[in-house]
Structure formats: structure tokens, C-alpha cells
Design a protein around this nucleic acid. Structure first.
Lengths: 295, 295
DNA sequence: CAAAAGCTGTATCAGAAATTTCAGAACCTG
DNA sequence: CAGGTTCTGAAATTTCTGATACAGCTTTTG
């Protein structure tokens, strides 16, 4: 009986308002390239991007005005004013309704995976922030803001990318910054130069890598200050580290998430940049100028 | 010259949002009768009543269009468009930061900086997830799960680290994975081998890098499929990209945050790993065994 | 590889919207 | 109640926006 009902309830979204944004996401495939640009712009600043003029919208999206018009026409509106009116009404309805926020549970295949993954990552970030001792964070900032010291970044097979990311930013903010490959053969020789004025910033999460540990132990033995970014179970490097910043890493995946480590890294970059602004600003301008000249 | 502080607009109240509505309430007495009607209409449906046309607003308020114009002029705006723009911006600011109550008070201490930074990053992640088209994400997963294709990762000076991060994971999950340096000299030769069966996954956010764009354009010209992870303003690579995944990147820093890109990367890794589990599992075990043997 | 179809931007136009002008109405003020 | 001031709206004016036609280009298809 009632066959339609059987499959129907699997497709009909239980959520009330068939938001325009949702429709756009679903139809994204059928759009032409420039329509996709318009769609992305609109979704990224939904719905405010659409409340400006056609010219403004087109300019921001990097397409021409007629393309914008064709876009809104394809969405089923009679014209741009119609489109704007819809956005305003939707916005008003949404703003006046009490919750309305947490609804958009998309049905598709990819979305739930992405959404739940994101949720887990966000949980990690919150937990990470709460478990960082302010004094510890501040101490690391002070260390990295000391221009007389040399800063060396290193990491394991996955976290090495984060170390590189950190290095590529700090290299611009201040001098005496470099990256050390994890393989012993690559750093054994350089260890002769590591001393009391050096800082090793190591990234290491579980499946702790022996070569990174060895590097840090050697450096510490020579008097270097070791800063460790790791997981809550603490890499063995913690034994020789002056400062430890742990991040939560568990995600619904076969892999650990490094988002917390990235958060700490970026927060350190941001804070140190502000603290060294007087000297960092001219450096950044110079770098920018050199880049432009080259091209 | 240029004595800061002389500017007239310095009398900003210490309280955060000097909402227009508040000002109108305070100045209500000084309005003329028809201006009061305009003010009441605006406040009763704030701010949506002001987003319509002058004629509409005048009609609803029961006054004439010129009276509306005089009203907004008296409020200090250069014209009706200015007035509307202000309303939109105020609305957007209010809607986008239901969390960001604490304004970026740069007290310099470490912990608040970390907390507010984390809040911004979390906001970015949420916005990123909401603006990703499920079909787009799914399409990319399918592409990266196709074992017959070759996957190449690349990125700019900062995002290159993310590309490496992605590569170091996918390399273990499946075969035919590599990393391409951004510098043209390093990839020109390899381009000869790029064809229809190749997939280029490019990371590129603003200050878009010309060499990465050139790489993708060349690859696309040879028939490769280009996947782009970028910011909401879309790297020029979007022109040749089959799929685009934009991530929000604005943070209270002099630098952009790549957390959204990392989230997408890790979500892709997690999903593809699950999909290829049959073949990925033995691969991962083998990798693990080889690592242990070596040490 | 050629033809067809589709997509996109430039140039242009029509029309609507905001703004100004100005004369009359309402309201004080003495 | 007359003179002056302020306020208001109809109509004229100007600005600017959204819409369209068309041609070049890219991609697809046979």
C-alpha cells in the first residue's frame, strides 16, 4: 500500500524551509562555470552578497553583470529585484524565528561525513584551548618573540607538514628561522651548531617517531630549549621539553586530526607577529616587494 | 601635520555596537512629524523596512518620498543607498557574530588571544562546512577514490605545506600519489606525462601564486582534471578547475587561517580511506611493517 | 577535424529609482 | 490675525541600475 510513502519519507527533508542556499548547493553541478562563481560567492556570504547591486555582485564574483542576471534567472526568479526580495524575506523570516540555526542537516552522501567530521574537529579545538595553560602559551610566545634566538622547526612524517607551515610564516616575521628534516642523516651535521641560544619547536603525535625524539634529545643535551606540540598522551619528547602544548586529535577517521596543532601554530604566529610588529612589518613589506619584483 | 585624533568622528562611544536603531530612539524627539513616522516604521521592522525602495518605504510609512530622503539625510547619511548599505553591514555583522561577543581586546596576554583566535577559527570551520556543496565534496571523493587515476598535490608558499600533508596521507592509502613543487622549473619536465587520467589537487588562497596557476592551467590544457581548495574569493585557478571547495580563512591575525582547508583535507582523507578500505587496509599494514623493520 | 551548441563579456538601451526644485499648507509668533 | 518660519508633497530632473542584443570564444559532438 501507499508505495510512494515508503520511499518518500527518505527523500523529503524534514526541515521546514527549503532555503534558496540549499537549492543552490544541490544544483551546483548543473551550473556553468561563471554561474558557479556566482553561487560560491553568494553561499560564502549568504545572503548579504546578493543584496548589493548587480554590478557589485558581478565584480566581487569576478564575472560580468549579464552572467549574474542569467544566474538569477536560472534560479527561477523573474529578475534581480525579485531575487533580492526573496533574499530579504528569507532573511527576515530566519531572523525572526527563534532557533532556525542548527537545522541544515543535508541528506546527501558527502555532507554528513563532512559535517560530522567538522563537528568532531571543532570539539577538538575547544578541548585543546581549554587544556592549554595560559602561562605555557605565553611562555612559548615570549620564546619565539626573542629575536636573538634561533628557531628550528621539525616534525614527523605527517606533522612535518605543520612544521613547514609554521616555518614558512615565522621565516617572514623574523630572522633566524629554519626547518630541520626528521631524518637523522639530514641533521646530524647541523647539531654541532645547536646550543643554548637555539629553540627547537617539534611537532609529534602518536606513532611517535624515534628520529624526531632523537633529534630533540640531542638538541636538549646541548642546551637548546625544546618546545613540543603533541597530543594529550604526550610524545616522549616531553621529557626533555621546556614547554608542552597538547592538542586533541581524535576524529571519526582512521587518521588523527592535526587541526588542533594547526590552531596552536596559527595562534602562535598571530600573537608573535603582533608582538614583533615593529620589526615584522618592514620585513613583510620587503618580502612582498621582492615577490612582486620577481614577477 | 596629520595629528591623529583631530578628526571629528572620534567621539565613538566605548560601548561596542552604536546601533543605528539606538541613535534613532535617542533622537526621536528632534524629528519632525513625518520623520517620526519614518522612524517608527523603521524601528518596528528593523532593519528590513529600510531595505526596500524609497517609494515603498514612503508608502508604508504614509509619507512622501522626499520626507524619507530628508529623514536619512538628517541621520547623517549621504543618501538612501548609503543608508541601506549601513543597514546591511550592521545586519551582517550582527548575524555573523552571535558568538564573537568579546571584541578583539588586544590585551596582549596569551590566553585571551588564543581563545578568541580559536573562536574565529571555529566560526570559519562552520561557515566552510555550510557552504560546501555536498555534490561537490562527493565528486571530489569519487575522483580521489579512483585508483586508475594519478593524483598530484600542489600548493603555494604557505598552502604547499597542506598539499604535502594531504600527499603524505593519500600516499599511504593508495598508489599513484605525488607532490609537485610550485616552482615552474621543478614541474615543467613532468608535465609531459600529465594527461586525461591525472588529477591535480591545488591549494591556493589569496595572494594567489602565479606559478601554481600556471601549473594548473597547463595541466588542464592537457586534459587533466583540476580540483581546487581555495578561499571564498576563489583563486584564478577556479577558471580551469572541475571542482572547487572554498574555505573561510579570515582570522584576527595578520595572516589568513588555513584551518578550513585542513578540515577539508582531513575529511577527504577520512572519506576516501573508508571508501578504499579493502585495498587501503593491507597497504597501511604493509607500510607499518616496513617502518618497524627498519628500526 | 569541422560543424554545432553553449557560454561569456562588451556595448547599449530602457526604465526605474533617488534626488532636487518649488509651491502650497500648516504652524508658530507677536 | 498678519508675517514669517517650518514642514510637506507633487512634479521635474538626474543618476544609476537592471536588462538585452550581439559577437567572440570555448567546448562539445558527429
Amino acid at each position: 500500500m501507499n508505495q510512494s510513502g515508503m520511499r518518500g519519507d527518505r527523500h523529503l527533508p524534514p526541515t521546514d524551509p527549503p532555503s534558496l542556499a540549499e537549492r543552490i548547493r544541490l544544483d551546483m553541478e548543473s551550473f556553468t562555470p561563471s554561474e558557479k562563481r556566482a553561487a560560491h560567492l553568494l553561499l560564502s556570504h549568504y545572503p548579504f552578497a546578493g543584496l548589493d547591486t548587480v554590478a557589485e555582485f558581478a565584480s566581487r564574483a569576478g564575472i560580468s553583470a549579464p552572467s549574474v542576471l542569467r544566474f538569477v534567472t536560472r534560479l527561477g526568479f523573474g529578475g534581480f529585484p525579485d531575487f533580492q526580495k526573496h533574499l530579504r524575506e528569507e532573511l527576515e523570516a530566519q531572523l525572526l524565528s527563534p532557533l532556525a540555526k542548527a537545522s541544515p542537516s543535508d541528506k546527501g552522501q558527502g555532507a554528513p561525513a563532512l559535517a560530522s567530521f567538522a563537528e568532531a574537529v571543532i570539539g577538538n579545538l575547544k578541548a585543546t584551548v581549554e587544556n592549554i595553560a595560559p602561562a605555557e602559551f605565553e611562555a612559548v610566545v615570549a620564546l619565539l618573540s626573542d629575536q636573538r634566538r634561533h628557531i628550528h622547526f621539525t616534525g614527523g612524517r605527517f606533522t612535518g607538514a605543520l612544521a613547514r607551515y609554521a616555518e614558512s610564516h615565522f621565516r617572514i616575521v623574523r630572522s633566524h628561522v629554519d626547518f630541520i628534516e626528521g631524518q637523522p642523516a639530514l641533521w646530524r651535521d647541523r647539531m654541532i651548531e645547536i646550543g643554548r641560544k637555539d629553540v627547537i619547536v617539534a611537532f609529534d603525535i602518536r606513532r611517535y617517531q624515534e628520529d624526531v625524539t632523537a633529534l630533540c634529545e640531542t638538541a636538549a643535551k646541548q642546551g637548546a630549549t625544546v618546545v613540543l606540540l603533541t597530543d594529550p598522551w604526550l610524545s616522549p619528547i616531553a621529557r626533555v621539553a621546556r614547554h608542552v602544548l597538547p592538542a586533541h586529535i581524535v576524529a571519526p577517521s582512521n587518521w588523527d586530526s592535526s587541526a588542533g596543532l594547526l590552531l596552536l601554530t596559527e595562534a602562535l604566529v598571530a600573537t608573535v607577529t603582533k608582538r614583533l610588529w615593529e620589526t615584522a612589518k618592514p620585513r613583510m613589506e620587503t618580502v612582498e616587494r621582492l615577490r612582486n619584483e620577481r614577477s
